[in-house]
Write a protein that binds this DNA or RNA. Structure first.
Lengths: 249, 249
DNA sequence: CAAATTCATGCATAAAAACGCAAAAAGCTG
DNA sequence: CAGCTTTTTGCGTTTTTATGCATGAATTTG
């Protein structure tokens, strides 16, 4: 990895998460802490970020107080994203939906990962594009403004033509009886197609949404291969799903 | 292998992967590192890439962020964008490429405008999405990292299926003799398809780029319906193009 | 305040770049 | 085509750059 490339990655991470730890950075890009520190020093000298003990902060890190609730959720999503990322290995074809949790997954991918990502979510695609070794394929069609993903028959047809190794789906509601449910008809159609196309399906969800139901059914529990939450794998909330044969992560 | 040929290969690699290592290059083309270094130096001098220790980076790696120069260009681009926007009326189907000038166009659209925009450029699409009354259609395919647009046969096939009222294209080089030229083969293929598909074609360009030539031809002057620059319509630089029957804006 | 991190500094080393030079290749000219 | 110039390329040598490691100082944290 080239120096400039590494610094670009660092800057990107800073802008993304508003902070970086030098320890995690040197882990991610596989260089010594000294090198990271020197990079941070240089970037700080250029005014690109603020260097602090243990890492660095984004220059636009002033208005944090108003979003305490969001930060709380953000952390949970990062835990989920890291768990999900651990399932992806070099050479894989990965299909993903959109949503903030998937976005977090896109952000926490290792820069060394070489894989192909397919998605119809514009913000998520933009995020994938920043990774040096990732191939990105966009599913085209009309863009739904509120979900920010491409929807429609063209998109579904395109999904049917591929056979990804794994599919990651953000989840709005999960229930033992009703399975996975959602509230946007178009998005549900798309998710159904994604589930059918993929060899393996992983659902990402914040634990708050467990045992809730939405009006439109996506799929039953039997279609879920892996369920990823921020909880420990032996959390009692997850028991019924484990019992249904779902792998908990 | 000829020098020119080698440099073309290097440029291609840079556009493809966003970076090249001089070590791997001299291995691939079987010349000494010195030669590669000299090539990179030349290409860097011509502004075709960014030379760094150990190799080179694509220009899309905008770590340099020279903002003062950009602001200057930005103003010109806003002038161009406003002119272009005046051509769009309610109900139109508009096809656009990517690039910073088109991005500016996307930003300067009236929030009241009700139209359908079609594009393969991810950042531009994201910008369109912010407009309340605009329908957005994404052209799907593999994403090219340096141009940030979708490229490939799928994208071209999709373009051939539509018949937009007008097409706006960012322009890299224009010349009386050679017409519109560009330096990325894949992007050129896409632009050609866009030109063929559209009822009307408008080219957006900064006046600096007038009377310059790039290696790959997009189209002749006869395909240009409208030329939009930041200059006054009676500027002498534009005379030959007006004489060729192009509407100047 | 004591332990554990994290940082700064100098130094060592390997890799890459710059430089000068000379040979080879290509181009030009009469 | 012979002789000249120019361009291109490769090879040492020297310089610069990037990176890791060791040591001691500074800092966070409990």
């Amino acid at each position: 990895m080239l120096k400039k490339e590494r610094q670009a990655y660092i800057l990107h991470q800073v802008h993304l998460h508003n902070k970086v730890l030098s320890s995690s950075l040197c882990d991610e890009v596989n260089v010594s802490e000294d090198t990271i520190r020197r990079d941070l020093q240089e970037l700080a000298d250029e005014g690109k970020l603020i260097k602090v003990h243990g890492g660095a902060l984004s220059h636009s890190f002033n208005l944090t107080s108003s979003q305490s609730q969001n930060v709380y959720l953000q952390n949970k999503k990062q835990v989920i994203a890291r768990k999900a990322a651990s399932l992806i290995t070099n050479g894989m074809f990965v299909l993903t939906s959109g949503g903030t949790t998937i976005m977090e997954l896109a952000r926490s991918l290792s820069p060394q990962l070489k894989a192909t990502f397919i998605s119809g979510s514009i913000p998520v695609v933009l995020e994938y594009m920043h990774h040096p070794n990732i191939e990105v394929i966009v599913i085209g069609d009309k863009v739904s403004k509120n979900s920010k993903i491409t929807i429609g028959s063209e998109a579904i047809a395109k999904i049917k033509q591929i056979k990804p190794d794994i599919c990651f789906l953000g989840t709005n509601a999960l229930d033992v009886e009703h399975g996975v449910t959602d509230n946007d008809w178009e998005v549900v159609q798309l998710k159904k197609a994604m589930i059918e196309a993929s060899k393996k399906v992983a659902f990402l969800m914040i634990s708050e949404k467990i045992n809730s139901v939405q009006p439109i059914k996506v799929c039953g529990l039997n279609k879920i291969d892996i369920l990823i939450t921020e909880l420990e794998t032996d959390d009692p909330k997850l028991k019924p799903y484990a019992k249904a044969g779902i792998k908990i992560l």
